[in-house]
């Protein structure tokens, strides 16, 4: 029981991260009906920006702390947002209206380019990240002596995710940007007829997804204390699985899917085999695609052309 609880806590943290990345996939799919295959790289770039900023701040004499963590988090947002914007401008917008596979191919190209860029600038080896917020507390102790630990960082990750989710929900439900975005999702031509700048709305959607993925990247860099230029691929694929599981196009679905994938991964590693945890996750993707392509919260596709 204690062991299960510990794994659930770890899975929840991981799931929050997958959920944040998954939102970018799901929002972009919602508005243009396509998967942003370069999205995982934005997450990876977020991690590297954390490394660079931490090194700079360290050199200026600021030791890692919660305040520094939050500053790095905020400072990374403009950078990852810029990458999100660039992906839309370079890989998607020029190809809108061309055959459906074209932007996917260009996005994969973009993804490889970004990986190589980071590899070139930062090297191919694992980069260590200094511990920002060490320690935690003991939630409970079993008779066997097994203790359930919660790290402070896990609390930061989950709390930050909850705050971002609430903020995002308000943004989508209550603001005129949110309404414009939903209008574009439901009927792009009608959105134009109301005077909505559809290109700008699509670009903002990419930027918003990238900002969230970047934040996830920063938090993961702190959480695992190591980053690598290839990290975006696997995390991106898992977050994509989360988005599909939750129902692609649905923002609450992405978060739910993320949590489930995080839990599946943590529990599978704990009870079955850690080597096959990625296989377990991708089996979920295959099963969902076969048996319930609309996911848990997705709507059946009506007329997306």
């Amino acid at each position: 029981m204690e062991y299960f609880l510990q794994q659930a806590i770890n899975g929840l943290t991981l799931g929050a991260v997958y959920g944040l990345i998954a939102i970018g996939y799901t929002m972009v799919y919602g508005i243009i009906g396509m998967i942003n295959f370069a999205h995982g790289e934005v997450y990876m770039i977020g991690s590297f920006i954390a490394v660079i900023l931490l090194a700079l701040l360290g050199a200026w004499g600021f030791p890692p702390s919660l305040a520094i963590l939050l500053i790095v988090l905020l400072a990374a947002i403009p950078f990852t947002s810029a990458f999100g914007w660039a992906i839309e401008r370079v890989a998607y917008r020029p190809l809108r209206g061309s055959f459906r596979l074209a932007p996917l191919i260009s996005a994969i190209g973009m993804s490889i380019f970004l990986q190589n860029l980071v590899q070139f600038l930062q090297g191919a080896r694992n980069k260590p990240v200094p511990t920002a917020l060490p320690g935690g507390f003991t939630l409970m102790e079993a008779a066997s002596g097994f203790t359930v630990q919660v790290r402070w960082l896990q609390i930061v990750v989950v709390a930050m995710t909850v705050i971002l989710m609430v903020g995002l929900t308000l943004l989508i439900q209550r603001t005129s940007f949110g309404r414009a975005q939903r209008a574009c999702e439901q009927d792009m031509k009608m959105a134009m007829l109301l005077g909505i700048d559809v290109n700008a709305t699509i670009a903002r959607t990419f930027v918003l997804g990238a900002a969230l993925a970047g934040i996830a990247g920063v938090m993961v860099a702190y959480y695992y204390n190591v980053v690598h230029f290839y990290d975006g691929f696997l995390a991106g694929l898992k977050a994509f699985t989360a988005a599909v599981l939750g129902g692609i196009g649905s923002v609450p679905g992405a978060m739910l899917g993320g949590l489930l994938i995080g839990l599946i991964e943590a529990l599978w590693s704990a009870y079955f085999s850690i080597e096959y945890k990625d296989v377990a996750v991708f089996s979920v993707l295959v099963l969902v695609l076969i048996f319930r392509p609309t996911g848990i919260l997705g709507r059946p596709e009506i007329e997306k052309v």
């Binding site: 005129s176 309404r179 414009a180 939903r182 209008a183 959105a191 109301l194 005077g195 909505i196």
Partner: peptide
């Protein structure tokens, strides 16, 4: 109401 708000978006 949201539809009407969208009409007024600009």
């Amino acid at each position: 109401l949201e539809n009407l708000k969208l009409g007024a978006i600009v």
